[in-house]
Amino acid sequence: MTEWTILLAVEETAKSGGLFDIDATLPLMAVQFLILTAVLNAIFYKPLGQAIDGRNDYVRKNLTEARERLAKAERLAQQYEEELAQARKQAQSAIASAQEDARKIAQDKLAQAQGEAGAKREQAAKEIEQQKQETLSSLEQQVDDLSRQILDKLLQV
């Protein structure tokens, strides 16, 4: 009896159109599928797409800003390096100028000191000559006195 029931059900199914019965359910399923797709698109995919687009815009904007900052930093670094090179050149020229000025001042002081030393040497030589003359005249006078005394003593004898 069960085998008969199954055979009857299969026969009944075969008469009604087979495994897929194309009637009003196919368009209804297609409409349901389209509505479900539209709802899912509106609820899940559009916000997700907007979030992804927003993130892409954010990343693109940050990447552009980072490139601009990097270019600006490179320009500033180059400018600072040029300024540093100029400052070094100015410092070297200032040092060379200061050394030249110090050398000139040292030469002037040396010449002045040599001049003062020469003047003092000449003054000392004059004083020595004067003292020598005074001493010689004093000695001559003493010699004259001693000579007279010797003569006097010789003449008295």
Rank of each mutant, 00 (worst) to 15 (best):
E82Y: 04
E100W: 06
P47D: 05
A106Q: 09
K89I: 04
D21Y: 03
E140H: 08
P27V: 02
L48Y: 11
E140C: 02
Q107V: 02
Q141C: 00
G18S: 12
A119C: 00
E116K: 11
I52E: 05
I43V: 13
T135Y: 14
G17Q: 00
V39Y: 05
L34E: 04
L76C: 03
E11N: 02
D152I: 07
L34P: 00
V31K: 10
A106I: 02
E134I: 08
K153N: 09
Q92R: 09
D21V: 12
K109M: 11
K120R: 15
Q32M: 12
G17W: 03
T37I: 03
P27C: 04
Q141W: 09
A85S: 11
K153L: 13
R60G: 03
A38W: 06
A102D: 01
E100Q: 14
D144N: 09
I52H: 10
S97D: 13
K104Y: 10
K109Q: 09
Q92D: 08
I22V: 06
Q86S: 08
A124E: 15
L146K: 07
Y58M: 12
Q114N: 13
R75K: 15
I22G: 01
Q133M: 14
V39E: 03
R148W: 03
L8D: 13
Q133S: 13
D23K: 03
I35Y: 02
A42I: 07
E100G: 06
L84T: 06
Y58R: 12
E11I: 01
G18I: 04
A124D: 11
Q112R: 15
T135L: 15
L28I: 06
L155Q: 15
V143P: 02
F44T: 09
F20P: 00
R103F: 08
E116Q: 14
R121Q: 14
L70I: 04
L136G: 07
D23V: 00
A30S: 00
S137Y: 13
